Computed example of a mutant assay.
Amino acid sequence: MAPLPLFSLLFTFLLSLTPTFSTNSEGNALHALRSRLSDPTNVLQSWDPTLVNPCTWFHVTCDSNNHVIRLDLGNSNISGSLGSELGELKHLQYLELYRNDITGKIPKELGNLKNLVSMDLYENRFEGEIPKSLAKLKSIRFLRLNNNKLTGSIPRELTRLSNLKVFDVSNNDLCGTIPVDGPFATFPMESFEHNRLSGPELQGLVPYDFGC
């Protein structure tokens, strides 16, 4: 009869590990992000990868199921680049990385964050094109990419983002024309100023990216 309690204890222990595995994937993603960043003021010092999940880390908010739903690192004096690992934060709703010194391209994997409501990457040094994959962010309302070094044209795929309320790409090096379909009909011209954009495209005509 002795082996039964031992088996029961082992089974209970294994069950208790299950949420650890599921939450650790998000912790691993954030730890990978930390490894890419320079953090001179130690705002990320609480990001301890040995913990069960990242919900006790500063600047990280979780829901009742211990899923990461918010990352608040705006104005944190961090530098470095972003990687594909951010696409693993499947439950993320708010990505706040504004006013830092982050360089490199915006990862196309950010398009996997289907629950994202707000993405604030403004006032960094992002370069390259705006990923077309961001058109998969069907829940997004706020997308602010202004004051970076982004190039290329505004992806027409973004006109399908019916929930988008605020879109700002001012102060970059974008070219081509400004879409007018979908939510783009409501955005003020200030959202596009200080680029190489040639103005709104004419409805009914195929857009031509002048100067791109």
Rank of each mutant, 00 (worst) to 15 (best):
G27E: 07
L44Q: 08
D173C: 03
E157L: 03
L10C: 10
H194C: 00
L113H: 10
N42M: 03
S35A: 14
L164S: 03
L143Y: 00
L121I: 04
Q203H: 10
V206F: 03
L145Y: 05
F13W: 08
Q203E: 10
T56I: 02
S153N: 11
L150F: 04
S133H: 11
G104D: 08
E26C: 03
S38F: 02
L143C: 02
R160I: 07
V180Y: 06
K136Y: 12
F58M: 10
D209W: 07
F21A: 15
T20F: 13
P54K: 03
G204P: 05
N147I: 03
L89E: 01
T159I: 09
L71N: 06
E201M: 14
G80N: 10
D101I: 05
R144D: 12
H91M: 09
L33R: 02
K90Y: 11
W47A: 05
T159S: 15
R70P: 01
N53D: 15
F7P: 01
R141M: 11
G87M: 07
Y98D: 07
D39Y: 04
G182H: 09
Y122I: 00
S162N: 12
L143V: 03
L14I: 12
S139Y: 06
F142Q: 02
S79H: 02
S133Q: 14
K138V: 12
D181L: 11
I154A: 14
F192P: 07
N163Q: 14
E129Q: 11
L17V: 12
Q45S: 15
S35Y: 00
R99Q: 11
K90M: 04
S46I: 13
T18Y: 08
I106A: 08
G83H: 09
L134A: 03
S198T: 05
G199F: 09
R70G: 15
D48Q: 10
D39Q: 04
L97H: 04
Q93A: 03
Y122R: 12
R70A: 15
P200Q: 06
S22H: 11
C55H: 10
K149T: 00
P49W: 07
L30H: 04
P107V: 09
V206S: 07
D72K: 12
Q203C: 06
L145D: 08
S170M: 04
L202F: 04
L4W: 07
L137A: 03
I130V: 12
N124Y: 10
G111A: 09
H67F: 13
M119T: 15
T103K: 07
D209M: 07
L110Y: 01
Q45D: 13
C175M: 04
Y98K: 02
I102G: 15
I78E: 05
R99P: 00
L86T: 01
G128Q: 11
S8D: 03
D120W: 15
L73R: 06
N66F: 13
H59Y: 13
R36N: 14
D209P: 00
A135T: 03
